[in-house]
Nucleic acid binder design. Structure first.
Lengths: 149, 149, 149, 149
DNA sequence: TATGAATGAGTATTCATTCAT
DNA sequence: CATGAATGAATACTCATTCAT
C-alpha cells in the first residue's frame, strides 16, 4: 500500500509535467525533482520511462471505465436518451477533472507514434467496445429499430 | 535558386518523416539519408533542427495563404455564401494534398510545447486574422446584419 | 555465534554465485536473495562488497592452512617424499572439495586487478611461505643436500 | 582505411587498459581519454562496449591464425617434429609480443562468463580445429602410426 | 538483530552540431 | 557548395550503500 502511494505520487508528477512539456522533454529527473524523490526511486516502481507512460495511459482508461461503469450499471435510467445523457455528462465531468490526462491522450500520445501506437489502439478499441456494448444492450432492449447504423 | 531547390528537397524529406515518426524520433541524419545528401549539408540551409520545424510550419501557412488569397482576391464571387463555399472547398483540397503537413500541425506540433508554442500561436493568430478580415470586409459590404456574433 | 553462522551463510551464497557469474555480475542483492536474507543484513556482517570478496579469499587461505598444518604437524611422516605426497594429496582433495573457491581464486580474482591485487599477492606470498618454511625445516632436518635449488 | 586506423587505435587503447584493469573497471571514457578521442567517436566504430570486447578476442584469434597459417603453409618443414617445433616457437613469440591479449584471453575473459562464454568457446574450438587438422594431415602423411591417441 | 525502501554517484549511450577537407 | 568524421552535452538507467522502523 505504501508502494502504491509512491507509484501514484510519481504518476501524478509525471502526468503534470508530460501534459505541459511533452514526453521527450519531460526527463525522469524532472519528474523526481517535482515529487521530491531520489532518481533511483523511480526504477523501484517503473521498469523504465516507457513503462511510466503506458501506466499513465492505462490509468486514464481505468479511471474512465469506473465512471462509465458507474453510469451503465446504475439501473435508474429508464430510457436510452437519459442514459446517454448521463454517460456524456459523466464523461464530460471526467474530462474536465482530468484535463492533464486528456491533454496527454489527445496531444502528446500522437507524437510518439512507434512506441505507443499499439497501446493507444488497444485503448481506443476498449473505449469503442464499451459504447458498442451499450448500444447492443439498447438494441436488444428494443430502443432502436433494427434498420439503423 | 539551386539553394532554394536543396532547401525544399530537405523540407520535403523532413515533412514526410516527421509526419510519420514525430519530431523527436526523426533525426537530422534520417532526413539527410532520405534525401540522399550529406549530413553537413543540412546546416547550410537551416540554422538547426528547430529552424527546420519552424520552416515547415511557416511553409504550411504560406501555402494556405496562397490558396486563401487566390480565393479572396478573385472578384468573381458575388455573394458571401459562394465565397465561403469556395474557400472551404479550396481549404479542403489543400488539406487533402498536404496530409503530411496537417498531420504535423495537428498531431506533432502539440507534443513539442515549449519550443514551438509561440510559433503555433502566431500561426493560429494569422489564420484567424484572415478569416476575421474577410468577415469584416463582408460586413462592410453589407452581407451581414450588425447584430450577429 | 549466531552472527558467525549468518556470516558463513552469506559467504557460502556469495562463493557460489561469484564462482558462477564473476564478481561484478554478482550483485549484493543476488547474494541475499540466494540465502534468503534482507538486503540490509549484509552490512551487519560485512563492511562492503569488497570486504566480502576479501573474506572469501581469506577463508580460502585459512581452510588451506588447516589442511597443510594438519599434514605438517602430523609427526607420522618419516621421510620427505611421503610428506610431500601427503601434502599434495590433501591439497588435491581440498581443491576438489572447494571447486568454487578455486574457480574464484584462479579465474575471478585476476579480473579484478586494482582492488584485489594486493590481497592476492599477500595470499600468494603466504602460500609460498608455507612451502618455503617446510622446505627449510626439511633442509635443517637433513633431508636435502645443501647444493640444491 | 582512415576508419580502420581509428578502430585499431581504439582497439589498442582498450587492449592495454582492459589487460591492466579488467573489463568492468575499464570505462569507455577511460579508453577514449587514453587514445585522445571524443566519447562519441567510440560509437562510430563499435556498437557498444561488448562489441569492443568481442572485437579484441576476434583480433586475437585472427592474429594467431596468421602466425599459424604462415607456419603451416610453409612447405619447408620436412618432418613433423620440426613442423611442430616451428609452430610452438612462432606461437611462443606471438604470445610474448601480445602479452596484453594473452592477459585478456586468459585472465579477464573468464571473469565475464555469461556474455562472452559463447565467443570464448567458439574461439577455443577454432584453435583446436587447427591443431586437429594439422595432425590429420600429419597422420595422412604417414608421420604417425595409426594406433595412437 | 533484521529489513527493504530510498538514494545518488557513476556509466553507457545518443544525437544535434561543427569543421577540416 | 558538399561532405562525413569527430565531438560532448545531455539522459536513461544501475547498483552499492544507508537508515528509519
Amino acid at each position: 500500500m505504501k508502494g502504491e502511494l509512491r507509484k501514484n505520487q510519481i504518476l501524478d508528477g509525471a502526468k503534470k509535467l508530460i501534459a505541459r512539456n511533452g514526453y521527450y522533454q519531460t526527463h525522469v529527473e524532472d519528474i523526481l525533482r517535482e515529487v521530491k524523490l531520489g532518481k533511483g526511486t523511480f526504477y523501484l516502481y517503473f521498469k523504465n520511462k516507457e513503462d511510466l507512460f503506458i501506466s499513465i495511459l492505462e490509468r486514464f482508461l481505468d479511471d474512465w471505465e469506473k465512471i462509465v461503469l458507474k453510469a451503465t450499471t446504475d439501473p435508474s435510467y429508464k430510457d436510452l436518451q437519459s442514459y446517454f445523457q448521463a454517460l456524456i455528462t459523466r464523461s464530460h465531468n471526467f474530462f474536465k477533472l482530468n484535463e492533464e490526462l486528456c491533454n496527454i491522450y489527445l496531444r502528446i500520445g500522437p507524437g510518439i507514434n512507434d512506441i505507443f501506437e499499439p497501446y493507444i489502439e488497444r485503448f481506443e478499441q476498449k473505449m469503442l467496445n464499451y459504447v458498442t456494448d451499450e448500444l447492443k444492450k439498447a438494441v436488444q432492449a428494443g430502443f432502436f429499430r433494427k434498420d439503423m447504423d
